[in-house]
Design a protein around this nucleic acid. Structure first.
Length: 279
DNA sequence: CAGCGTGTTGAGGA
DNA sequence: TTCCTCAACACGCT
């Protein structure tokens, strides 16, 4: 579900509700959510820590606590819910973890497919550790430009669509926005990555920044199940999608029909007529 | 009932 | 090394 704009939106709402709250206790319902720490150690350490800051890196949400760091990934369907009453806990069939604050408000992480993860560090030194360590550049970083891509894609022969999804080069782009970026850049998803010209790379950079910025403004894309917070805030970027999910519909530029192919088992939508393939 | 999927990882093979 | 496909994770939806 969530790509950079959706995660950014979730962060925005989380900040609104839980900044400066102190965690009293935590309940873990699905042990597998904890990636790098035992339940015992986690529970012991997190008590009485205050949430100082909430930031995003790639598709990860980073909770900076008084003396530790909690890093959450929503994978496909993870969602946060916030309540002032404990009784709402029982309505969440797929909850993986819940936090209870000093004022007895609660934050629930719910995930129907249970793919979500939490990494927990006993300090603030998370940047030099996985999963954050392996992430590539942020799309809004000023150093993200055509020269960065040229350098990193010099030897990359795979399809450009796949390259865009590699989080260790650029982080935050997922299947939806990759298709949209390539459409706006007029580049075919099967184009060989290192055959792209500097001009093409420049187009990709510009399209990436433009699309992600717009999607953040519209609070993300709601196709199937995405809601950013409390299950009731959904995005509006779906009304701005130019190719994604538009199979067999007319291209907004040229009226040819949008095509759909499978690339690494993921759907790719594109316009065969507008998007040029470099072999 | 079978197939699908907005994400990530690892195995196995070419 | 590099790249690919497939499976796994688990569930609701079509």
């Amino acid at each position: 579900m969530p790509e950079l704009p959706e995660v950014e939106t979730v962060c925005k709402y989380l900040r609104k509700y839980v900044i400066n709250k102190t965690i009293k206790d935590v309940n873990v319902y699905e042990l597998k959510i904890l990636q790098n720490i035992t339940l015992k150690e986690f529970k012991k350490n997190i008590q009485n820590q205050k949430i100082l800051q909430i930031t995003r890196r790639g598709k990860y949400i980073i909770f900076l606590l008084s003396f530790s760091t909690l890093i959450s990934h929503l994978r496909m369907e993870g969602k946060y819910f916030y309540y002032s009453e404990q009784k709402f806990l029982k309505f969440h069939k797929h909850k993986m973890i819940s936090f209870c604050f000093n004022d007895n408000d609660i934050l629930i992480y719910s995930d129907t497919r249970k793919f979500g993860t939490i990494h927990y560090f006993l300090n603030h030194n998370f940047k030099n550790n996985n999963p954050i360590k392996k992430l590539g550049i942020e799309p809004f970083n000023t150093n993200f430009n055509e020269l960065y891509l040229k350098k990193n894609w010099l030897k990359t022969k795979k399809a450009i669509k796949k390259s865009l999804l590699e989080q260790n080069i650029i982080c935050g782009i997922g299947n939806i926005y990759a298709d949209e970026i390539l459409f706006l850049s007029k580049i075919h998803p099967l184009s060989v990555t290192n055959k792209l010209s500097l001009t093409d790379l420049k187009k990709i950079v510009l399209a990436t920044k433009t699309i992600l910025k717009k999607a953040i403004e519209l609070e993300g894309t709601t196709i199937k199940s995405f809601s950013s917070f409390q299950g009731k805030f959904s995005g509006h970027f779906q009304f701005n999608l130019k190719v994604y999910h538009r199979y067999n519909q007319k291209c907004f530029n040229c009226n040819f029909l949008i095509k759909k192919i499978k690339l690494s088992n993921r759907s790719s939508f594109f316009c065969d007529h507008c998007q040029i393939q470099k072999k």
